[in-house]
Computed example of a mutant assay.
Amino acid sequence: MTGEGLHDFARVRRIVKTDEFSSVFRLRPTQKTAHFVLYTRPNSLPHARLGIVAAKRFAPRAVTRNTIKRVTRELFRVTGLPPLDCIVRLARPVNTKSGPATTSALKAELRSELERLFAAQKARATAATP
């Protein structure tokens, strides 16, 4: 994908550097769900940026971690958040190595949690702007 449209995920919309992650992590978590913790910090850019942390100890299979990242990026793209640095961190185990890597039920549950996180951030920003 090229261009800087709302629905892309160009490098400028990603948090990639360790110090950028650290500066957001220093703040308290903004929100928590059953599996995720969301950290946010206002930024001075014209757009929101996203970082995703999916640790192997909470999702031992790469397929599961990649699914989490894919769903998170997709929802981030379509939500249209205000200028924030957002880090979504997987904070609880989602499955085991012996179980199935992903199921439609797991995907639906993770998607609904992430939708709630991003929708709440968008609503909070809308309420803050007069």
Score class of each variant (00 low, 15 high):
M1R: 02
T2H: 08
T2A: 14
G3C: 05
G3I: 09
G3Y: 07
G3Q: 01
E4N: 14
E4P: 05
L6H: 13
V12R: 15
K17P: 06
D19F: 15
D19S: 14
E20R: 12
F21A: 01
S23V: 13
S23K: 14
S23P: 12
S23G: 12
V24W: 09
F25W: 12
F25R: 07
R26H: 10
R26N: 09
R26F: 10
P29N: 06
K32A: 06
K32F: 08
K32D: 04
T33W: 03
A34F: 15
H35G: 01
H35N: 04
H35M: 04
H35T: 00
F36G: 00
V37Q: 09
L38M: 12
L38R: 11
L38Y: 10
L38G: 08
T40F: 11
R41C: 13
P42Q: 07
P42H: 08
L45G: 02
L45C: 09
P46M: 07
P46H: 05
H47L: 09
A48E: 02
R49V: 03
G51F: 03
I52N: 01
A54G: 05
A54H: 02
A54M: 08
K56E: 06
R57C: 05
R57K: 13
R57E: 02
F58A: 00
A59T: 03
A62Q: 11
V63S: 09
T64F: 10
R65I: 08
K69S: 02
K69C: 03
V71Q: 03
V71Y: 02
V71H: 00
T72S: 07
R73T: 01
R73V: 02
E74C: 11
E74R: 09
F76V: 09
F76A: 04
F76S: 07
R77L: 14
V78S: 10
L81F: 02
P82D: 13
P83K: 05
L84R: 02
D85I: 06
C86Y: 08
C86E: 14
C86K: 15
V88S: 10
V88F: 08
R89N: 08
L90V: 00
L90Y: 01
P93N: 05
P93D: 01
T96Y: 03
T96K: 05
K97V: 12
K97H: 14
K97P: 10
K97T: 14
S98V: 11
S98T: 15
S98M: 12
G99E: 14
P100A: 12
P100G: 08
P100I: 06
P100Q: 13
A101Q: 04
T102M: 11
T102E: 12
T102W: 13
S104V: 14
S104N: 13
A105N: 12
L106V: 01
L106S: 01
L106T: 00
A108Y: 10
A108K: 12
A108R: 11
E109S: 15
L110A: 01
L110F: 05
R111D: 10
E113G: 02
L114A: 05
L114G: 06
L114C: 06
E115V: 14
R116T: 13
R116A: 13
L117K: 02
L117I: 07
L117C: 04
A119W: 10
A120E: 10
Q121D: 04
Q121R: 04
K122I: 08
A123V: 05
R124H: 11
A125V: 10
A125P: 03
A127W: 07
A127S: 09
A128Y: 11
A128C: 10
P130W: 11
P130M: 15
P130T: 15
